[in-house]
């Protein structure tokens, strides 16, 4: 087995709450992303997907703590690096496009200058040569190279989002982390950007960790998807397997929560109830209280992670039973 691009082992993230409570936002999460793979994470608000992404690049808010775990980029354990070393790893080896990044560009600097700043902070190269590279990066994400001379306000939202993706790719990272990269954009622009990302990714072979609540989109983009619920993965499978044969009841419910565009129109059941309070340790499965397929055991005994196939994971007592839905 070749070394995976990213290997996360037993990662947990805690946030302090009021009255001494501790919220366990990410709970003992382990997964790998292979070289050249697009790995997608889907889940609803508060499931821990953004905390997981930010923990991987070590950009959590100061109040959050990594309670346990390791994050290996190839063989390098990011959790053991000091801040100076981490700064050099970020952008060079792993780059992040945070949520609504397109609004985080400086309004007073030209697009080109902002990309150049990132390059010269990491490499001893001249600003002129870095600017040439900025032009090439813009071309790569489907923008006109001349836009290096533009200010952010002169570009549409979609163009700004392409520009921040170009920026993230400036130092050829081996892993690109994207948190809701197209959420605020309309669907036509979103589809264009996603197609472009996939094309560039296939050409240069880097890995992508992409997070979104839009499961249908994620399944179009990602080679493998992980469904998160209450701080952990409940299922990880290749996208085609998720489409044909989702094993976890929450995966099935989440898939059904998106009305299909084509095919017969029929009522889909919504998921009743709310996710559990992450400050309280649960005895059983975190989804048991809302699960239409739960049995007595689900409420008292936590299911163990099983691997139905290579690079796959499902955490459900009844994972081997055929779906009753």
């Amino acid at each position: 087995m070749p070394t995976p691009c990213l290997r996360v082992v037993g990662l947990s993230v805690d946030y302090p709450g009021s009255a001494g409570k501790v919220y366990h936002a990410v709970q003992n999460v382990s997964f790998t992303v292979h070289h050249g793979e697009i790995f997608g994470i889907a889940g609803e608000s508060g499931c821990g997907k953004s905390s997981l992404a930010h923990a991987i690049v070590r950009l959590l808010k100061p109040s959050a703590t990594v309670a346990s775990g390791h994050v290996y980029l190839d063989d390098l354990d990011l959790m053991t690096l000091n801040e100076a070393m981490m700064r050099s790893v970020r952008w060079e080896k792993v780059a992040i496009v945070p949520q609504s990044a397109m609004n985080n560009l400086s309004p007073v600097l030209r697009i080109g200058a902002q990309i150049v700043d990132a390059i010269v902070a990491h490499e001893s190269t001249s600003r002129n040569r870095a600017l040439d590279r900025a032009r090439e990066l813009l071309r790569r994400v489907g923008l006109a190279p001349e836009l290096v001379a533009s200010y952010p306000h002169q570009l549409s939202g979609g163009m700004r989002q392409r520009a921040v993706i170009a920026m993230a790719l400036a130092l050829n990272p081996q892993l690109l982390v994207m948190d809701e990269p197209t959420t605020a954009l309309d669907v036509v622009v979103q589809a264009g950007i996603m197609h472009q990302i996939k094309q560039v990714q296939r050409e240069f072979g880097f890995s992508v960790l992409v997070i979104t609540h839009d499961l249908p989109l994620l399944m179009q983009v990602a080679d493998r998807v992980g469904i998160m619920y209450a701080g952990s993965f409940v299922e990880i499978v290749p996208s085609p397997v998720m489409l044909e044969h989702p094993r976890h009841p929450y995966s099935r419910a989440l898939m059904q929560a998106f009305p299909p565009l084509l095919g017969p129109s029929r009522r889909a059941p919504s998921i009743e109830g709310t996710p559990p309070d992450l400050s309280i340790a649960l005895k059983g499965c975190s989804f048991a209280a809302r699960c239409p397929e739960a049995v007595a055991m689900c409420g008292v005994k936590a299911p163990v992670a099983m691997s139905p196939g290579q690079d796959q994971l499902v955490v459900c007592h009844r994972w081997e039973e055929p779906s009753r839905v």
Binding site: A191, G192, H195, Q220, M242, L243, P260
Partner: peptide
């Protein structure tokens, strides 16, 4: 452009 898990990107 509308996301649809049954269609390719």
């Amino acid at each position: 452009s509308t996301p649809d898990a049954h269609k390719a990107l």
